[in-house]
Simulated assay, not measured.
Amino acid sequence: MDFETRMVTDSLGREVEIPAIVEKIVPLGNTPRMITYLGLANKVAGIGGMAPDRISPVTAYAYATKDLWANVPIVGTDSGGATNYYPEQIISVNPDVIFCSYNKELADEIQNKTGVPVLTVPMGTLFGKDYEQALRLLGDVCGTKERAEDVIAYINDCLKDLKERSASIPDADKPSVLGAAATFKGAHGIEGVYSKYAVFEAISANDVTEGIADKAGGVLVDKEQVIGWNPQFIFLDSGGVNLVKTDYDKNPDYYAQLRAVENEKVYQYPSSTSYYSNVEIPIVNSYYVAGILYPEQFSDIVFEKKANDIFRFFLGSDDYLSKLKAAGVSYGKVPLGDD
């Protein structure tokens, strides 16, 4: 090599020689979202993702950068959980580095087929330490260490604020809540629920699903289980709202047994998961849910301002709420039985 290089150890312990200064990148897996948070969207030469005409505001990082990336070649996809990459297209855009969140075998395969250095980072657990590891590695390679630390601090400050405000509420005074119409392997109706949901855990919510699963994620339950839980509040992923409304029209007697429906305590928020998990939307969702469940403790928070501040920090986009509202995937009550 006739230019300065350095050795970097990635998250899987692979030692990779990369250019000392990285100007052109190809992010695959969950790294397009991460590099967007780090302000590196303008360094993308080719991207793993979906066609621009399929991008919803719920895939926030891609929607916020869709104009910037309008002419950036798609060089891979993880749509529907199926990972694929296109070596010829990657070679044609001549990147300095390829980032991915894949296993060692696939990372080595991509590097061998393209001749381009490949660095792996953790997939990223929502609000987890491995996400911090990913951001720090990306920031180190691309010269945005300070921004990486700012993003990590911002996430942790939000989580601390949410936790501290919620901690003063006795468990006995917390209303019961269910996260339904969960997004996992597609959209689901009322029977698709979240277990150990990070949005609820961030605010120490009284989640009725506690104990149904060992791992965080979506779970399909019998609809009668929802009746058994009979939560006071139900929050629905925007992607599953129409499934719930359709089911209500077919089975109104079932929903009449739910006090959240009877008391008009059913709400929607944007799906946290869209082409892997978002970060900014779940943080906003946590503030939204907390403001409804714990109005006294969050009385000084103006939700619209807080939400747009969070979106602006992560995405560099002003008034992102209006984009969510225009697409019908924003925040609000879900009327069941009303047109």
Rank of each mutant, 00 (worst) to 15 (best):
K223H: 13
V219T: 11
G179L: 13
F233N: 00
E164T: 15
S195E: 06
R259S: 08
I234G: 11
D161S: 11
I227V: 15
N206L: 02
K223T: 10
F184E: 00
A182D: 08
Q257V: 09
V221G: 03
G189A: 15
V199D: 01
K215A: 13
Q257R: 15
P175V: 02
L258P: 12
A202T: 01
V261P: 12
D237T: 10
A260L: 11
D253T: 05
K223S: 11
I190L: 14
I227M: 08
E262L: 05
A213K: 14
G218Q: 10
T183Y: 11
G186E: 13
N242P: 07
E164C: 09
G211H: 03
V221A: 04
G240P: 01
A180D: 11
K250P: 02
F235R: 03
D161I: 06
V221P: 08
K174C: 01
W229D: 04
G189W: 10
E191I: 10
I227N: 04
S204M: 06
V208W: 12
D253H: 06
P175K: 05
A216H: 03
P231Q: 09
N206H: 11
A182P: 08
I227C: 10
E164Y: 07
E262M: 06
S204Q: 08
I203P: 03
G240H: 04
K174L: 01
E224F: 09
W229M: 05
A198R: 04
F233Y: 05
F200R: 07
V199T: 02
Y194H: 15
K250V: 02
S195C: 13
G189H: 01
A181I: 14
K174E: 01
T246Q: 12
L236S: 04
R259F: 06
G217M: 09
T209G: 02
E201K: 11
T209K: 03
D249V: 06
Q225W: 15
F235Y: 13
G211C: 05
I169V: 09
F200P: 09
K163P: 04
Y255I: 08
